[in-house]
Every structure is written in C-alpha cells, then in structure tokens.
Design a protein around this nucleic acid. Structure first.
Lengths: 334, 334
DNA sequence: GAGTATGATGTAACCGCTTTCACAGCATGG
DNA sequence: CCATGCTGTGAAAGCGGTTACATCATACTC
C-alpha cells in the first residue's frame, strides 16, 4: 500500500501538502492540488485510516449496543443505523448485551476499548446511574427506547403510552367494553407505559379498569400463550385482548385456536410492534407500528450532527406509534 | 487516558518493558512484571488499540458483508459471527450489499478502507472473478453460502441439493406422487441446487420430473403467492408443493387459503430455511432447517484460526440441512 | 519603493505503541 | 581467567498520518 510519503515524493511536495489535499483543510493552489490528486490516483493511494485515527484522535467508528443482533426490532434498528452511517463513511461496530447487566457493562467496556467516537445503546438492565457515568466519562452516547432523566436530549424513544392508548381506543370505538391486557414485565419502562396508555383509554371511555383482566407476562410467545390460558381460566367476560407485543399475541392466538375460539368473531386481538411475524399470523394481526428503523436512522443522524459536525435536520426524540389494522380485530360481537 | 509513557515513568522502566508486559511477547522478570501490572492498574491504563494497530498492522476488526442486516437469515448469521468474535476480543464491522453488484463492490471498498484483518462475505451479485481478485489483493476472505471454484477452502456453505432432496423425499415417502415446486431465481446457485435435489429425489423414486410443475419465482412472499396461483391455473394434478424458502411458502399458503384449499388435507406444503416465520404460520410450516447461526460461528472460527492464529477444531465447510416436521405436510390424500 | 497583509508550502513534533538491536550482567564451561 | 551464551532491559526507529509554526513569495497599500 502506498503511503503519503510516496505521494509527496512523486509530486515533489511535502507530506503536509498532500495531507492538506486529502483533508481539504487549508487552501492549496489549484496547480499543486491537481498534481497531488493525479499522483494519488497513479499510486492508488488510500490514506491509512488507522494512522489518521491516531493523529486525529477520531476512529470514525460508532459503537452500537443492542440486546440481540437478530430479531425483528433490533435487526431493523441496526439496519437503519448502518445505512445512515455508511452513507456518511462511518463504520458501525456492534456488540450484544442480552439485557443482562453484566453483559451490558462488559459490552460497553468492549466498545470503549475500540475508541468509538460515539455509542448508540439499547440497554435494559443497566441502571440510570451507570448510564450517567458512561455519558460523562466516555464518548458521547445516545440511548434508544428509554428516557433517562437528565439525559433527555440523548434519548430517542417511542411514545409507548400513546401506543397502548390507540390500541385500546380502537377496540373501544369498535364497541368492545371488556378488554383484557397481556403485558410485558412491568419493571421495564416500555411495558408499563403501554399499560398506562391502555388504562387512559379505558378511563376516557368511562370504562372501569379491572386488574383481573391484566396479566403480566414476559414478551415471549410462550408467555403470551400461558397468559391467555390464565385469562380464560378466570372466566371473566372479555371480547378483546391487547397484547403488549406481537410475539405474545402469536402465543395468545395459538391458545385461542386450540380452544376453538374464533378471531376476531369471538375475540379481537391486537398486538404491538408491527413485527414481520404479525403479517404471517392467521388471521393477520392488527397491531401498533413501532417505527424502529426510522428511529435507528435518527440515532445515526444525531451522531452525525453532534459528533461529526454534519449539518442536518432537527432530531426527533420521541416517535409516535400508529395503528396498523389487519384482520385480527373486529367489532364487538355484542 | 493514561499512556504507556506514564506507566513506564511511574515504574521507572522503559516503555519497551511495559509493552512487553502488555503483550507477553518476551520474558520479563517477575519483579518488574508485577510492578508494571500494578502501575497499570493504578493508572487505569488501557493500551490504545489504534496505536497498537498502527504499530502492528493489525486492526482486530473483521468486516462482514451481508445483503441485509435484518431478516431471519442474515440476522442469525451476524449473531453467530458476533458472538464468536466478541469472545475472542475482536470487533465486527458490517456493511450491506443488497445483492447488487455495485453495492457489493462498494461495500468491499468501504471495508477495505478500514483495514480489516479479514472479510466474511455473503455476496450474490459479485462475479467469481471479482472475488478471486479480492482474495488475492485484500485481506483473507471467507465466503458464505457459495462455492467459488479455486477457493473451496474459503467457502462455508449449505448442501442445498441435499436440502431439496430431503424435502421432496419426505413427501414421496408420505405417498405423494405429483409434487409441485416453487423455486427461487435459478440464476442463483442455492435456488438451482435446491431444485436439483428435488429432481434427484423424484428420480430415485421413479417419478417423472414434470417441468410444468415447477415455477421459478423470486424468494419473496408475493412471488410465492403468485406462483401458487399460476400452478393452480395450470390445472395439473398435484398433492404437495415444495417451496424453495419459507417466505414463498407463506405466500403460497395465503393463496391456498383464499381458494379454500386445506393444508395439509388437500395439499401438503414444505418450506425451506426454518425461518422464525415458519413457526407463526397456520398451519405451522414443515421446512428444512438451515443452520445459519452455526455457519456464522464457523466462519468466525475460521478467521480466528487462520488470521489470528488461535488453535481450535477443524472447520466444517459444508453443512447438511435437516428436516423440521410440523403441521403443513401430511400423507397424500390418495 | 518600503512596509505589510496574505496565501502557499515546508519543517518537524507528535499521536501511542511495537520491535529490532545493542548491551550489561551473570552463570557456565574449559 | 577468558570465551560463550543467556536473560532482562533500554534506546531509538519506525507505523502513516496531522498540524502548529516558520518561511517565503507575492500582491497590495500609501
């Protein structure tokens, strides 16, 4: 690989001048610039990014920490981030935290050793205090799907409360009165916010909130299936169920089908996330769209503006979910 | 951040000695080693990876090129790669090629500028010649899901022919005789291999291969749906359909359901990939398992052994798919 | 035409680490 | 007692760039 020295020698200028041409930092006369450029071409010269990093103290790498690489949500998020950063010539390094505190901490350490210019992280287990510490000691960070107080301008999140609200509101407007709810772990912010939206919708329609119609589950398919069984066991009347994510809705659907209960004729079902699987279920699942790819793009955007100084549009910190109507929810049979 | 100089000053040795302690390259007396180690701890010293890279000409980064970041197959592959490399303290940088030659070429360029120590790539559009060129000029490469002649020891692939064979074989053994086939683009190796396996199974069971029962489609859901419509339009008898991937099977299922054709009572359906969606379909899809996560791990493994000199088990270059029986395939109604 | 601002370029230090080579000190063997 | 071979360590030259500062024309001002 050719170095900057070879280029400078070929042209007969100093390496400083070549460097200036590369970076466009200072004015270089047109004549020398042209000579340098053609020499670079002739030698097929590419600046060594490692050397540049060492000299400038920038790595052009952005670290991304997600619970998992695969899966509908994180895959889509990574996709948005990668596309945006790539266009800007920045590199994405990722690590997984598996929603476990030790792993998340370790992953941050790992990314820190790479001298990332910024960190985009989706962490669940890590306490606010740890995030604050990282924010103050490490490179700039951006937090996905979580609002950390004191770092609001570093957070990009979904208005989960609104999502829960529109799901239940839609069912109420279709005439449903008794609406059950299968929740994710309420210790997690998104799960409790979604439930709060559900409650608000009920209140606005003067429906009493009945705790017995709420099951706290785990965001997984089996959990949804078991939660639905538990609901049926309680023998309370309900004509619709909101599931706090699509996977649990898939599980719930399995249980209902096994009991011969028809969707949506007997019971309407609504999910949350608009994950790919929601389109494959039968009947196709009505759900709440979670614009995670866009949110990933926005995160990358923030980094490009605030870390790499590129100008652009304003960053949107809170995204509003919207309803996706499919076949699993219909009018109340009553 | 503390540097190696500060450590050396604190201990009263030269930076060379500190470096030796860091790398364990040469013998250092126990006494000095201990002093250096505790000084490193006291200063919370971490070697600067960028500087190390510049000096050693290694970046500790592995580039991964996939068509897309998300999606069942590539997400799972990335997941396997990341897990394995991460355990070894190596970084994964990824880029997407979207199965377009220009984009794939560009992505390789992009990763090349980062001085990756190795490249793991899943490319579809790039010609063998380009891959050979990259293999000879750039860092070591590993090719996923494709066998490039002359580079067989650099390829990790699935025995697609075998997969096609076991799918059709299973149907034949369940008594089916007329078996239709919805293929992916036959210009792609995996699609044509899968079809070849289908043909071999038919031949081994003395069934004539009927071209009119084969539709070439595009690996997408809509394509599967349209292909099934075309099949029905041809009004040839068949009691089972093999789809070359699960997405097309999902589309085919939609079409059959819309016509009131029961699965598997009227027609049996088999997919390929064992993507997550196959479990969400109704009825749950029988399919061929594609151990892509393991294959990703294996790729990372190869890199660790051949680039970073870690010892380990032998690399498996060809993976055998296996059958996953679910509800969508049953005995022939005849 | 002297004084000065301005623009283009060169010089050299520096980023933080690795590694070759030299060397001192010491044990070994004849 | 000297030649020899080890071990442990230090000095210093890279790795390939960036950039503060110096220098030198050149153009401009009065």
């Amino acid at each position: 690989m050719a170095t900057i020295y070879e280029v400078s020698k070929l042209v007969g200028v100093s390496v400083a001048t070549v460097s200036r041409v590369i970076n466009g930092s200072t004015r270089v006369s047109d004549k020398t610039r042209q000579k340098v450029l053609s020499a670079m071409q002739a030698l097929d010269y590419k600046p060594n990014p490692i050397a540049q990093s060492l000299a400038t103290n920038r790595s052009d790498c952005v670290g991304v920490l997600v619970p998992e690489v695969h899966g509908p949500v994180f895959g889509a998020m990574l996709s948005g981030i990668e596309a945006e950063l790539r266009d800007a010539g920045k590199f994405t390094i990722f690590a997984t935290g598996h929603n476990l505190e030790a792993k998340e901490r370790e992953a941050i350490q790992f990314l820190n050793t790479r001298n990332c210019d910024a960190l985009i992280m989706h962490v669940e287990a890590l306490a606010d205090a740890s995030i604050h510490r990282q924010a103050h000691n490490g490179p700039p960070i951006l937090i996905m799907n979580r609002v950390v107080s004191g770092l609001e301008d570093r957070c990009i999140s979904l208005d989960n409360e609104h999502g829960g609200y529109i799901a239940t509101n839609m069912l109420l407007e279709m005439g449903h009165r008794e609406i059950a709810y299968i929740s994710g772990p309420l210790a997690w912010g998104d799960a409790s916010d979604r439930l709060a939206g559900h409650r608000r919708a009920l209140e606005e329609h003067d429906q009493k909130f009945d705790e017995r119609l709420v099951i706290e589950s785990n965001f997984h398919e089996v959990g949804g299936s078991e939660a639905m069984e538990e609901l049926l066991r309680r023998e309370l009347p309900f004509s619709a169920v909101v599931c706090a994510n699509d996977e649990m809705a898939a599980g719930a659907m399995d249980t209902l089908r096994a009991r011969g209960i028809s969707i949506p004729d007997d019971i309407s079902l609504v999910g949350f996330d608009n994950a790919p699987l929601s389109r494959y279920l039968y009947p196709k699942l009505s759900t709440v769209n979670y614009p995670i790819t866009e949110m990933g793009r926005m995160a990358a955007h923030w980094v490009l503006e605030n870390v790499y100084g590129q100008s652009g549009t304003a960053v949107q910190h809170v995204f509003k979910p919207s309803l996706v109507m499919r076949a699993s929810a219909g009018r109340s049979p009553n």
